[in-house]
Design a protein around this nucleic acid. Sequence first.
DNA 1: TTGTGATTGTGTTCACATTCACAATTAACA
DNA 2: TGTTAATTGTGAATGTGAACACAATCACAA
Lengths: 204, 204
Amino acid sequence: MRYQKVPDETIRRLPRYLRALLFLQQRKTESISSQKLAEYVQLNSAVIRKDLSHFGAFGKRGTGYNVSLLSKTIRDILKLNKPQKTVLVGAGRLGTAIASFPGFKRYGFDITAIYDNSKAKIGGKIGDTTIKSTSRLADIRRSEIKMAIIATPPDAAQETADILVENGVTGILNLSSCYLKVPKRVKVRTIDLAMELSMLPYYS
Amino acid sequence: MRYQKVPDETIRRLPRYLRALLFLQQRKTESISSQKLAEYVQLNSAVIRKDLSHFGAFGKRGTGYNVSLLSKTIRDILKLNKPQKTVLVGAGRLGTAIASFPGFKRYGFDITAIYDNSKAKIGGKIGDTTIKSTSRLADIRRSEIKMAIIATPPDAAQETADILVENGVTGILNLSSCYLKVPKRVKVRTIDLAMELSMLPYYS
DNA sequence: TTGTGATTGTGTTCACATTCACAATTAACA
DNA sequence: TGTTAATTGTGAATGTGAACACAATCACAA
C-alpha cells in the first residue's frame, strides 16, 4: 500500500494516536470523537481529522471513530500489524534498559537479536535473547531484520550503521550522540537525551 | 537576558550546534563556517546563520564563527553556563542508565538527587548519589532544583510531575509513555522511544 | 590602496503545516 | 417521518519555518 504525499509530520503523529487508541481499547471504549482523542494526545482536533483523511474516511459523522477499527488501520499504515524483527546493537546500560522495555513489544517490535563488542557480555542474556559479538553483525542479513536500534558509544555508531544498512536494515533508531550518514532509502531517527534536556533551561 | 520571538525550532537546534562546537573545541579548531558546521549537524547553512542571527552577529564575514566564542554564547543563551541542578525520578533500568550517562554532565547538568518508590532501591546508590524515597520528593524545593527527568512507569508520571512543579521545577524531560498536564510556565519534553521507533517501518 | 575570494546577515520567496469554519452526514428520538 | 444535536471531512485562510540569493563585510595579497 502506498499513499501519495503524506506529510512526515502526519506519520510522526500516527504512533501517538495508536498509543491512545490501545489505551482506549483496554478500557473497552468503542468509539471516540476527534475532539476527545485530541485531549488525550494534546493536539487540535482538526489536525487529527486531517491526518486521518490522508488514508481514507474512517469516521462516522455524528459519532466519531471506531476505536478498534482505527487502531487496526493505523497499525496497517505503519506496518506494525505483523511483528517487526528488530536488532539492538550495544548492550550497555541504555541498551539493556531498552531490551527489557515492554513498550516496544506492545507496538509490534520483536528484539530478536542483540549484539555487543564486550567479551564480558557476549554469551550473556537479556531476557531470552543471547548477546552476540558485533563481529557477527552481518548475520542479520539471513534473519530478514529491517529495523535496528543503535545504543553504542558514538565512535562505534557510524561503523555499526554501515554494516546494518549493508545487510538489509532500512530503519534505525539512533540513540548514540552523533549523526549518521546513510543512503536515502534508509530512515534514521536520532535521539540524544542530553540534547533534549538541553533546550529546557532556556525557557526557565 | 530575554530575546524576542525566537522560534522554538531555533532553540531546539542550539544544542545540536553546541554538541558540534564542543567536538571542534576538542580538536582545537578555532573557527568554522556555517557551511562546514552545517555538514556536521546535517542542516542547511542558511538555517544556522538565521538561527544565530536571532541573538546577535557573532560571525566574521569571510572567515566564519569563532568556535570557542560561539560555544560560550550558545551556553549562555541556553543557560548552561553554570551547572543546572537536576532531579531524576525513577531508578529503574532506564533511570539508572540515564544517571550513569556522562552526556548530561557535559552539557552542564548535575543530577544531584534521585528518587524511587521501591523499598529495595531506596538507600542504594547510583554513582555518588543516594536514592531517596519518592515520599520525600517535596524536599527538592530546598535545593533549588529547576530541571527534572521523569523515568517512572506511566501511571506514576502525572503525580510525580505535579509534585515537581509544585516544588519549583520548570523544565521536565518526560521519558514515561504518557503526556503530562502542567502549567504553561513549565516546559515539558516528552520522549517515548517506542513511538519514535514506530514511525520507521512506514518508510520501508 | 585596490582587487579578489570567502562568508556572513538578511529581505524575499516559497513550501508546508496548522487552524478555521462550515456543508454534509449520521444517530437518536419524538 | 421530521427535527435536533453531534461530528466528520475538507476548502480556504492563516501562520510559520526553510531555502534562496545577494549585498555587505572582511582578510589578505599584490
